[in-house]
Design a binder for these strands. Structure first.
Length: 366
RNA sequence: GCUGAGGUGGCGGAGUGGACAAUCGCAAGAGACUGUAAAUCUCUCGCCCGAAAGGGCUACAUAGGUUCGAAUCCUGUCCUCAGCA
């Protein structure tokens, strides 16, 4: 009954899937060939970052981000809902939220209004396989009353998104070729709000629901309670998407609750920051993701790494691990060559694609 | 040999009588990173005690001196660099 595949433009993918973030139509430090070689199944691109520059020019010529990137994997577009938090609520860019939508002031003379309708419309232009509705991020610090406001707004925006989505699908006569549409559940730590939000979104009707908001509690531990609430109140045939999730153990944890789509910046960002994910196993087929400490970190920025002539991991078949030594990577980091970020990112992405391979074959479902 | 400039923490380089254990950068170490405005950010970085506030000790080539007080002023010594012989 739960979905078995994620259908995309060029085929279908077995679940669960992990999509690293190519926010601006590039997975930082990699080109499309590199992405393919990591056996990554798909990518996530972002509406907020792309819609200003690409809408009128490139997308018209190419017909979609994937065509623009010459990428034939799966692709999900995010709505820009997370930027409502990461950019406005954190004060990095001036902006405000109204019932109409999110208003951004990136510079003095520039004003951007991102409405649920615009977000859907642009995502349809991006021509991705899954469209995510614009949501109003519930700030984790917020009280019940404020959380409720963001939930109501999220539901309202979801309705508007859905009807815009249907309108465009109809207009373009997409029929069965409509992309998936994902609702996003807000409500912070308030379980009754999470449940309410989930149920209301299900009434509207989506192909799946995303675990929205910030998935960590005050202590920094993963909030599985909210994830359970969402999973328990969703129809069986729904995709369950851990938005921005996460650390390998968090992906495993959510997977056990039935979540089957993930995306996260961690593998790529951590790679550039000199943190490599390494399985505690001699070879790929000995990896056991059910063990508590199934992986560790390796740090090519430490001085000791410069004299480490061994491979980063024997449980990995990426370009870095099959060809180069830790010492060489450490050297590339030391001289700040971009190749360091590239090799490290390739490695971490392969770590995640292996993680998904292992999850598909070995997970103990709860 | 003469003349000039200078010797500061792992390195580069500020400071030129008190607010100096000494700005800043690099190197080094630790931490963070979860729907990416992050190849970024934070902290530590003479030694010892302390959770911290703070305290103690040793330091600005070296040996003396002047001064209430010196990395800063004076003298000797050693060394480095530049120019001239």
């Amino acid at each position: 009954m739960p979905p078995k595949f994620f259908k995309y433009k060029y085929g279908k993918l077995p679940l669960p899937v992990f999509f690293p973030d190519a926010t601006r139509a590039v997975l930082r430090s990699l080109d499309t060939t590199d992405i393919e070689n990591t056996k990554t199944q798909g990518i996530l691109v972002n509406t907020f970052h792309l819609w200003q520059g690409l809408e009128k020019t490139i997308l018209k010529k190419f017909g979609g981000v994937r065509e623009f990137m010459d990428y034939e994997g799966a692709a999900i577009s995010d709505s820009g809902g997370f930027q409502v938090m990461s950019v406005i609520k954190s004060g990095q860019i001036k902006g405000r939220i109204t019932d109409q939508g999110a208003i951004f002031y990136p510079s003095k003379n520039k004003k951007l209004i991102l409405t649920p309708e615009k977000s859907v419309e642009f995502q349809m232009k991006l021509n991705t396989d899954m469209v995510v509705v614009l949501d109003d991020f519930t700030d984790p610090k917020v009280n019940y009353k404020e959380a409720k406001i963001s939930v109501e707004r999220t539901i309202d925006w979801a309705k508007r998104s859905k009807s815009e989505f249907e309108k465009i699908c109809k207009k373009r006569k997409l029929n069965k070729n409509c992309p998936y549409i994902l609702g996003v559940v807000q409500g912070g730590k308030y379980q009754d709000l999470r449940e309410y939000c989930t149920r209301e979104l299900v009434k509207i009707g989506f192909d799946g629901l995303g675990y929205g908001g910030w998935p960590l509690n005050e202590k920094g531990d993963f909030d599985y309670e909210s994830a359970k609430t969402i999973a328990e109140n969703s129809p069986q045939n729904y995709f369950l998407y851990g938005l921005g999730v996460g650390k390998p153990q968090d992906v495993v944890g959510l997977c056990k609750l039935g979540f089957n789509i993930f995306d996260c910046v961690l593998p790529s960002r951590d790679a550039r920051h000199g943190r490599l994910y390494v399985y505690n196993a001699e070879s790929i087929n000995k990896i056991d993701v059910n063990k508590p400490n199934f992986y560790k970190f390796a740090n090519p920025k430490r001085v000791a790494a410069l004299s480490d002539n061994s491979k980063v991991s024997t449980a990995c078949d990426c370009l870095l691990c099959t060809r180069y030594s830790m010492a060489y990577l450490a050297h590339l980091f030391k001289i700040r060559d971009f190749t360091a970020g590239r090799l490290a990112t390739i490695h971490n992405l392969r770590f995640y694609s292996i993680l998904m391979e292992r999850l598909r074959s070995t997970i103990d479902k709860v």
